[in-house]
Write a protein that binds this DNA or RNA. Sequence first.
RNA 1: GUCCCCAUCGUCUAGCCUGGUCCAGGACGACGGCCUUUCACGCCGUUAACAGGGGUUCAAAUCCCCUUGGGGACGCCA
Length: 460
Amino acid sequence: MSVITRFAPSPTGHLHIGGARTAIFSWLLARQSGGTFLLRIEDTDTVRSDASMTEGILASMTWLGLDWDGEPIYQSQRFDIYNDYIDTLMATGNAYWCSCTPDEVEAMREKARAEGRKPKYDGCCRERGLGPGPGRVVRLRAPLAGATLVNDFIKGPISFENTELDDMVLRRSDNTPTYNLAVVVDDSTMGVTHVIRGDDHVNNTPRQILIYNALGLPLPAFGHVPMILGADKKKLSKRHGATAVFEYQSEGILPEAMLNCLVRLGWSHGDQELFTREELLKSFSIDHLGISASVFDREKLLWLNQHYIKECPLERLRALLAPFLAARNLPEASAGYMDGFLPMLQPRSRTLVELAEQAEIFLAPDDALPMDPAAVAKFLTAEVKPHLAALAEIFATVTPFAHAELEAAAKAYLETNELKFKAIAQPLRVALTGRTASPGLFETMEALGKEKALARLARV
RNA sequence: GUCCCCAUCGUCUAGCCUGGUCCAGGACGACGGCCUUUCACGCCGUUAACAGGGGUUCAAAUCCCCUUGGGGACGCCA
């Protein structure tokens, strides 16, 4: 039987790294076996749902390279289907109308809590034989005894006493279906074989199984992946810094780094740390999914990102970098010029933001190159300036204007003047780049080209 | 409060199912060194963990129980 998985985000927020990870696992499970990966937008809450969030979620999925089959399915367009199922449940005696108000139900919960029991609806309308009416909801007639077993393919078997579960609402008083009902109907009609979702849904699973049973529908396989926590081991939230995928994108993280980082959170393949998309599709197995929560480590993501930046082909890197250069108001340059300095910056950048920041050395107009005042004061001293001027004259005659030749010329000058390289290295660097840290001096000069390099030396 | 889940270096994890090969391996980080014109890269090394207590067993990180700690869920949200 072919595998069918789905990712079912609710458009009430951005795609978080936790959601992204479950999406990755679902995607891998489907794609590695030639199965189907579906996308469903859970927007039954018409008030909290926001279409622009859906767009953002789809954009983040696409950025990560998680392609889905067919068009996204919107629950908001399937209310008729859900209502048919609710009617069936009603007709078969598996559901009933309830006239209790939210306040009344809340009072029941309070009472139960006060008595040390699990807060839940007490089933008072179960046998009243009520019909439809304003303010009334439809509830599931859940079993009062026995247990419901969740055979989780990640966490193992989990058993719930049915007395812990209550008669959940299936249709709200405004006639819209609730989450649990919609999920069951959708997963069933979409033919989903493997439901992979966050740990926070384990408690919903027995409830959904009850609905499957009442409807006489076969169960899919359920697998719940552990949560991702912040550095303080608390549920990931805003105060932990970036939690949304798009934030990492704008920080200059490469999608392959994000994917690699997320997939290794809670899943492993021996000691392997780096995975190409192809390797993931080949190696991924639910057998090696972890069962305990993990803390998201920004440093490891940065390390991975640097790795992928180093490996990135120049043509793609130029494309990735373009928006970050634009954000710094740096002028565009030819591919040939860019390719002259990009390789030197790759091992020095953990993000595209850092890469753009360093590219300023090469892209800023010579008369607008930012000069670090402290560096200027420290290194461009009166004693050293004559030497820089003399070197500039020598460099002007060097052919070709390449790092080996430039270095040889500089060394010769130093020797005749009995100077140490250290004496002019930093001054030269500051004059050329405005900073104290940069790629190799002569490589930088070569990349800048004769005209720009000499123009910069002439400024000091 | 009630229910459910989890527990190996600071972090991600291997090992656990099928006890001995583990005085616990890898990676990130940190620290130190090499390289070196700066900053990086790279290379080498160091640091650091089986939560605690009981069992079972010749033998337990691995199996069982308890405790503690952590997380999640208890909505006419998803």
